[in-house]
Nucleic acid binder design. Structure first.
Lengths: 197, 197
DNA sequence: CACACTAGTCAACAGCCGTTGACGACCATG
DNA sequence: CATGGTCGTCAACGGCTGTTGACTAGTGTG
């Protein structure tokens, strides 16, 4: 029996294959439940190569997950519809199966301590702060954090917990409900009262 | 060298000690990162005894985490202040260190597949459905699910990710911001109009 | 051709995991 | 006192984990 043919000697392609396999696995199952051997098998190579290329599982995760999120362009544009843009983004995302979502990968891995740090930094630097910069009024940082919290909550409820109502509902109806709520955080007003505390 | 003295033969106390240690550990670190040996060590007994009492780690987790959440009483009372009650509950919870929070334990363990199912059932049965029963208007189930999503998001952002802005802020200011937002889901308004139908 | 270099494989390490069965120690009851 | 059943301990199983080093097979260069 001849052993299976070796991979062609292409370092760049192999590295990319590992990264792609890692992204898919981490997105679906989270950091803890994905083994180096799983990633290697999905990439069609030896487990040792994964370590050789990335040093350790943790660094592979960091490299696979970072540098992929580009939310900032969402924050640009008129603030009156910012809530709707955010709602539409989070709610229509993930409709293409097999898509890699760094946020989801991070959320699934959040219980892991180094990952929690990674996630905090990513959310803070790529979401909360840029968003807070575009908010007027007091408590901008707090309101941006609460917007992030709601967005994260929706992602967790729908994609991790797989809440039946959220997962099975029409996106349009969801956006219509969520958009004005996020917008309220954007505007920073309490409608019954008229002023911020 | 005499080995350390045996535990007094008290089955009920030992069982309770295991359960308490398991709750603390699962709340802090989640299902995956807590080993049977960790729980046993915290309870001061042999790892084998944990399995003897609970059958398996998974059943221990289920027993440790279920039957502890009693949110329903929050939903009773006047609906006009329901949003504030919810906001106050989620935001002031966990101020006593060492407290066990089943929701947090579940959230930290959510990536694990059987735990995700457990969590979905718990959230659905103990939160979404009772809450939806108290909501008027269309999309009651959806609006209740979105309230749950926001509450979960705040919990994740604050306790798992440890978002700096949320973790370090004054609870009163947070409640003032969150309460009217949750209330909007309660009232089911989509316009800026402040009146309920 | 012979060389150094690199890409890939293989086998194994040490350590952890959940779980099991055999084995003492204790206690209540006969 | 003897006996049966329960409580606790101990050691070990098989399987998994991330990681390492030795080894082979190709490639580009002198």
């Amino acid at each position: 029996m001849s052993s299976q043919p070796r991979r062609p000697r292409d370092a760049a392609a192999t590295r990319a294959a590992i990264l792609q396999a890692a992204r898919a696995a981490f997105t679906r199952h989270g950091y803890e439940r994905v083994g180096v051997r799983d990633v290697a098998a999905a990439a069609g190579i030896d487990p040792a190569l994964v370590i050789r290329y990335f040093g350790s599982k943790e660094r592979l995760f960091a490299e696979a997950v970072t540098g992929e999120v580009t939310l900032v362009d969402l924050f640009a544009g008129d603030r009156a519809a910012l809530g709707e843009r955010l709602a539409r983004y989070i709610l229509t995302k993930g409709e293409t199966p097999g898509a890699f979502d760094a946020l989801l990968a991070l959320l699934r891995s959040a219980p892991s301590d180094p990952v929690a740090t990674l996630l905090r930094d990513a959310v803070d630097k790529q979401f909360v702060r840029p968003l807070a910069d575009r908010l007027d009024g007091g408590d901008a940082l707090l309101r941006a954090s609460l917007i992030a919290a709601h967005v994260i909550g929706i992602a967790v409820a729908r994609d991790v917990i797989r809440s039946t109502a959220l997962a099975g509902s029409d996106c349009g109806a969801l956006v219509a409900l969520v958009a004005p709520v996020l917008q309220r955080y954007v505007d920073g007003e309490t409608s019954t009262d008229g002023s911020i505390a």
